[in-house]
């Protein structure tokens, strides 16, 4: 970790991702700067997950470039929560301990307790992570990601497989995380969720960034016919 060297802003410049003949991302340019959450919306297969993976450095762009805080190397202060996070085969506390880089045992225990409290899992500290419910696992994944002290937290459809109560719990954590000054970048196809959380909206269709604006502008007066159709639920591909 490079303390003091922020990964923000992340600049994506004309980035394309191709797999064989299929173009998944097509010349996307986007700047991710500190501030309110940036929400990626778009129909299935529009390239939201791919864009997040690109920003995390999990995949490389076929063309175009991407920089983190002006640097070319993969961001060190980025963290991510997947739609179905992988729980390591150990306790909830040990899952967080896994990413805590250093510090004394007592300092780490203190940090673990604080993170578990933050996501409301303090009672399940010693439970095997794989025996937690889907919602609990998602919250543990958030705590584990936050343990990395990220500048930016990427979330790929974190509530897609959760029930409403669990979804609300996760959204509350996202909101408080954002309030604590950590940049949130989240992909979702839940427009209500986007409206509840977003600062900006990036709207993708078929791998192209079709519209990028503030949440208010996007939902009240979409600039493109695709966005308008999408908001009506009429976008047919």
């Amino acid at each position: 970790m490079h303390a003091g060297m922020s990964d923000l802003p992340i600049h994506i410049d004309q980035a394309s991702v191709r797999a064989g003949d299929v173009t998944i991302l097509d010349g996307v340019s986007l700047a991710i700067a500190p501030g309110k959450p940036t929400i990626l919306v778009g129909p299935n297969g529009s390239g939201k997950s791919t864009l997040i993976r690109l920003c995390m450095g999990l995949i490389e762009a076929s063309s175009g470039r991407i920089t983190w805080g002006g640097r070319n190397n993969q961001g060190e202060r980025c963290a991510m929560v997947f739609q179905r996070p992988v729980m390591l085969r150990r306790t909830a506390a040990a899952n967080i301990d896994f990413v805590l880089a250093s510090g004394s045992r007592s300092a780490r225990d203190e940090r673990i307790a604080q993170l578990l409290k933050q996501v409301g899992l303090e009672r399940l500290r010693d439970r095997p992570a794989r025996r937690l419910s889907g919602g609990e696992q998602q919250r543990l994944a958030l705590a584990r990601a936050l343990a990395l002290n990220p500048d930016v937290l990427f979330l790929d459809e974190p509530t897609a497989s959760l029930d409403p109560a669990a979804t609300k719990a996760v959204e509350d954590i996202i909101r408080s995380t954002s309030d604590a000054g950590i940049k949130i970048v989240m992909a979702t196809h839940d427009l209500g969720q986007a409206r509840r959380l977003a600062g900006d909206i990036a709207f993708l269709v078929r791998g192209k960034l079709t519209e990028y604006s503030t949440s208010e502008a996007f939902f009240t007066s979409p600039a493109t016919p695709q966005a308008a159709a999408f908001l009506r639920g009429d976008l047919v591909l």
Binding site: L58, C78, F82, P85, R144
Partner: peptide, 24 residues
């Protein structure tokens, strides 16, 4: 196959990846 993205996202180095996979 299952762990790759998660461990890469946690910025876990190759040696620690091996140890983690062996343990899990």
């Amino acid at each position: 196959e299952e762990y790759r993205d998660e461990l890469n996202a946690m910025r876990v180095g190759p040696v620690r990846c091996v140890v983690t996979l062996l343990w899990d």
